[in-house]
Design a protein around this nucleic acid. Structure first.
Lengths: 207, 207
DNA sequence: TGTACATCAGTGAACGCGCGTTCACTGATGTAC
DNA sequence: TGTACATCAGTGAACGCGCGTTCACTGATGTAC
């Protein structure tokens, strides 16, 4: 079926960008290359996204939505123990980043900052899942402001997973892993790291 | 003094790249623009760096050297208490990143990975300062392999400062800071975060 | 049910741009004797 | 101390390239009557 109209070009372009970025990194992105991959003229994307930045913004937004899902899945995996929920959220965060390194870089890159409202919202949504996890651990009701200790814990957790993910993506953990594949190294070292950070900053579950 | 020969074009080009990247971010880099800023023909850089990548590699290498110095300065500031040394190393790491956000991004960007030996070395040197701090805290002699707990602590520390720095650079901490300037937020929240992570993963100093 | 027409989603050629790199060159420097 | 010459560090014009965006256009879709 090769009709004049594509059907769902919008999604196809997002998908093509995704794939390009996954294969060759954010820096390899170009509107023309994406159009080529989608089998469409270089002017076509403008109808859906305005300009190149618009497309990237849409991809980043989708990325944050994926990240949010990953965090929620981690949460569920953790069961009822607040600390376990945080642990699995953290693992989910890093796993998402390692599964989509190009997109992850894009999501936190400059040049997209503050431009788009939808992007901001999706970014905040991811953050709020983390915050909710910390609220649970500190027994702070929704709506109530976070106390200092809770803020610190939230910031520590977010930083540690974000940093771990970035270092792994940048290839900086490979030397630490030695001859082991990176995934194996992550599987053992990340939970250990998170355990320490969580124990150090989050109160234990009440019996 | 406008002679035909520049005198120290190599340094001048590195400086110009530094400035450009600081003002407009890594993405704004171009060989021609840097040559323009150095007041030199676009072909001149090739004599010193081969190609554009060569120049960026040199800048990144200098960046890691600066980071290493910042970590050592932090170390010194911490005095004899191993935990304090680590705390100030961490603060030094983040402060360096915030003072040179463009360069920091460049240092950990893809596209430079593994290419250059000098770059690798300077990167490792920075890492080794952190490692040395952890060795001291765990009383592991140089040359001895790190035990698991020490590895975990090292990785936790590195991740947390790297993540905090990246989030701050990406503007993701601004919402947390509210109306406060970011620097003020960092000054209070970063030590608190590091305190928690260090307490959670590094043994206390022996009396 | 059929037809006119507005709207939408794509085409493809063309634009101007800034880029990295090449090339033959030239001016300055330093070294051998 | 002077001179010839090799070497080095820069010039500036030119190359070809891929890019994002524009523009007038056209084919398909859907809606009003």
């Amino acid at each position: 079926m090769t009709s004049y109209h594509h059907g769902d070009l919008r999604q196809a372009l997002i998908g093509a960008t995704d794939a390009l970025i996954a294969e060759q990194g954010v820096e390899a992105f170009s509107l023309r290359e994406v159009a080529r991959r989608a089998g469409v003229s270089p002017a076509a994307p403008a109808h859906h996204f305005g300009d190149a930045r618009g497309l990237l913004t849409a991809v980043a937004t989708a990325g944050f939505e994926g990240l949010t899902e990953a965090l929620e899945a981690g949460n569920a995996k953790g069961g009822k123990d607040p600390r376990k929920r945080l642990l699995h959220q953290g693992i989910g965060y890093v796993e998402y980043a390692l599964a989509h390194p190009g997109k992850f870089r894009l999501m936190f890159s400059e040049g997209l900052e503050g431009a788009d409202e939808k992007l901001m919202c999706s970014g905040n949504a991811a953050f709020l899942v983390l915050e909710e996890g910390v609220r649970l651990a500190f027994a702070i009701a929704p709506g109530q402001p976070l106390e200092d200790e809770a803020w610190t814990a939230l910031l520590a957790l977010w930083s540690v997973v974000h940093g771990y993910a970035n270092l792994a993506i940048a290839g900086r953990l490979q030397p630490c892993a030695g001859e082991k594949p990176l995934a194996a190294f992550v599987a053992t070292s990340l939970p250990a790291v998170l355990e320490k950070v969580i124990t150090g900053s989050v109160p234990p579950a009440k019996p």
